[in-house]
């Protein structure tokens, strides 16, 4: 249990610093900055009680906002996917209930895990860019930014999860 708390604390801080110091300044193709901090939502232990996930996700989002001067945009988006993480996972797995405790992303098939990550990333990025542009006339910019950035976020997140978590 202690190990779990320590692990998640380190992950929280590491993701925050990685995002604001490295990934916010990447500028692939001139303007693409992958938002890898949402890996937090993918890796946070699946529990029946979701309040801790919601509060911590909100805190991570607002910390990112402090650094990148973006108001509450990241906080809004990450809280959103944190809440809908479980329903989306259930829909992808086509299961009514989870085996909480043992479950993590590495125990399900790669395809399903990838689909799960991709869905959440697309939703998150769409909210972020939608709130950033804040107008319907910019819908094309919003969609193109969402897709382009999502590709890199998904790639880097998947790679990071494969490299840094143990397969059970």
């Amino acid at each position: 249990m202690n190990n779990l708390v320590l692990n998640n604390t380190i992950r929280f801080i590491a993701l925050l610093f990685l995002q604001v110091l490295i990934f916010n300044h990447m500028n692939i193709f001139g303007n693409v900055n992958p938002m890898v901090y949402i890996t937090w939502v993918f890796l946070f232990p699946f529990r029946k009680k979701r309040s801790l996930l919601l509060i911590l996700s909100f805190l991570l989002g607002i910390s990112i906002d402090f650094f990148s001067d973006s108001g509450g945009i990241n906080a809004f988006a990450i809280t959103f996917i944190a809440y809908f993480r479980l329903p989306i996972l259930m829909a992808i797995l086509r299961r009514p209930d989870l085996d909480y405790g043992q479950f993590n992303l590495r125990t399900i098939s790669t395809n399903k895990a990838f689909l799960f990550i991709a869905t959440l990333t697309l939703i998150h990025h769409f909210i972020v860019f939608g709130l950033e542009y804040f107008s319907f006339s910019a819908i094309l910019s919003i969609i193109s930014n969402t897709i382009l950035t999502s590709i890199f976020t998904i790639l880097i997140c998947t790679l990071g999860i494969v490299l840094f978590t143990k397969k059970k």
Partner: peptide, 8 residues
């Protein structure tokens, strides 16, 4: 939480 974020 979402309302809080939206206010900000």
């Amino acid at each position: 939480l979402e309302i809080l974020a939206f206010i900000i």
